[in-house]
Amino acid sequence: MQISLKIALIIIMVFYLLCILGAVKKKNMRIGYLIFWIITGVILMIALLIPNLVENVSNLLGFGMPINMIFSIAIFVILYLIFDLTTLISKEQNQNILLIQEISILKKRLNDLEKKEENSNDQ
């Protein structure tokens, strides 16, 4: 790998880690997802900093080119992540529907009670 490319990648990695740090500080991400991003960051950092690690591993696993291994792994990780997210969205949607229904029914009951009270006060 050319040294200029390596420096560029390291800069991107530092930016990525800063993003994670920001998310940790703001506490706006669930711990489970934070752990996923931190582990991903650490793995990428190791792959970047240890010379010839990617090449050796891809040779060992029988990939023709190191880039093939990287793409394959990346695609599978992303697929897993999207699957996980659609599961989460479905769960959230169901919870939303439940909340809207229950709140609306409660509001109706509250209205009915208030009306009843008004009527009994008038009499």
Binding site: I97, I100, Q101, I103, S104, I105, K107, K108
Partner: peptide, 15 residues
């Protein structure tokens, strides 16, 4: 009953 947000026919009927 006024649903506080649009749910679609299924969610409405379930209410």
């Amino acid at each position: 009953i006024n649903l506080i947000h649009n749910l679609g026919i299924g969610g409405a009927v379930q209410t």
